[in-house]
Design a protein around this nucleic acid. Structure first.
Lengths: 190, 190
DNA sequence: AAATGTGAAGTTGTTCACAGCT
DNA sequence: AGCTGTGAACAACTTCACATTT
């Protein structure tokens, strides 16, 4: 999607699977195979229409409209994420943040209100929020998760270094920075 | 590894593949199969010795001693990562940070010196650093990467939302927060 | 009795090779 | 001539089933 946006910005109309795969860092056949799972979008002999492909992916990802997201745990990492512009750019909007100590000193102006934990259910229900970012310490993560799930959250981006227990219908995606470094560390030792 | 550490902290001596798989969020057979790629560590009828297994993994990962790491790009995210304790806990130490504007106002005391970009090669060579964390804007990421690679870095943890071009021997691991959210967003739409 | 280690079976993902459009 | 779409071949990964050990 990012590659397509860059092509669009440069007014490039069509792109071959070869060229797109190149910049996306995958193989051309892979790209074609993947795309055909959702239909036929290319023109033989010509390639893919950049705008059309972008539209198709946007529809598919469900990111055509701004998705509301909440963030729980306004510590170092949470604060940084709140100030991160990338979410906005990709169609997500952090509509509220929660912290055990809502009034805790914060050293920068935050773009969203910070509520106490007791407000979680209310905000989620009122704004029809489906996704949450969890940046609380490991020992609080499971409890927070339970609260979120009970309030109707079905997608969690988890930064706490534990495996969260959730009902089957809830999706969890884990981001563990220390683990990423460990992986690298293993692969680079020669 | 984190699961093992927790077991150790609770003075639990041995663990079955079933129990360990449970807390790690994988299947027991998977765990056993994976472990046997590196040798036989378990005792039939009993399970795995927690300490022994932890030692084995540590040796394997090459994280027994503190690995030095540098960070480039001291913006929002970079600042948060510098204050993040998780790295230290998993055996990594951020020894220096670099930014285009080293004297830029920072709103918290940082635990490491922030140098200008011109110092990158010097610090990396002097301290024998092999891994780097890249938290610069997308348009600066490739240039920074080139500098790092030229200075001898062989592992990069990339937060910039582009595919970095690197020589074959350099490992890149990408962390893209907006993309994680997109994935979730796709999978939760029902 | 309890739990590992592992060949075989099953499943999923990737690449090839090329027919078929434009 | 150029490039997609796709069945078939190939490769990787996961799970099963169970012999084996303590």
């Amino acid at each position: 999607m990012r590659c397509l946006q860059r092509l669009k910005a440069n007014e490039i109309r069509t792109v071959s699977s070869e060229a797109l795969a190149q910049v996306a860092g995958v193989k051309p056949t892979q790209l074609r195979k993947d795309l055909t799972y959702f239909g036929q979008f290319g023109t033989r002999g010509l390639g893919y229409d950049v705008t059309q492909l972008a539209t198709m992916i946007t529809d598919l990802l469900g990111t055509s409209s701004l998705q509301p997201v909440v963030l729980v745990g306004v510590g170092n990492l949470g604060t940084a994420l709140l100030s991160y512009r990338g979410f906005q750019e990709q169609g997500f909007e952090v509509v509220a943040a929660f912290d055990a100590d809502a009034r805790r000193y914060r050293d920068r102006k935050l773009p969203v209100p910070v509520h106490g934990m007791d407000k979680i259910a209310e905000v989620i229900r009122d704004q029809h929020v489906k996704m949450a970012i969890v940046t609380v310490p490991a020992n609080a993560a499971q409890e927070v998760t339970n609260t979120l799930v009970a309030a109707g959250i079905t997608g969690i981006l988890n930064f706490a270094p534990i495996v969260l227990a959730v009902p089957e219908e809830v999706m969890v995606s884990n981001v563990n920075l220390a683990m990423e470094l460990e992986n690298l560390s293993y692969f680079i030792q020669t």
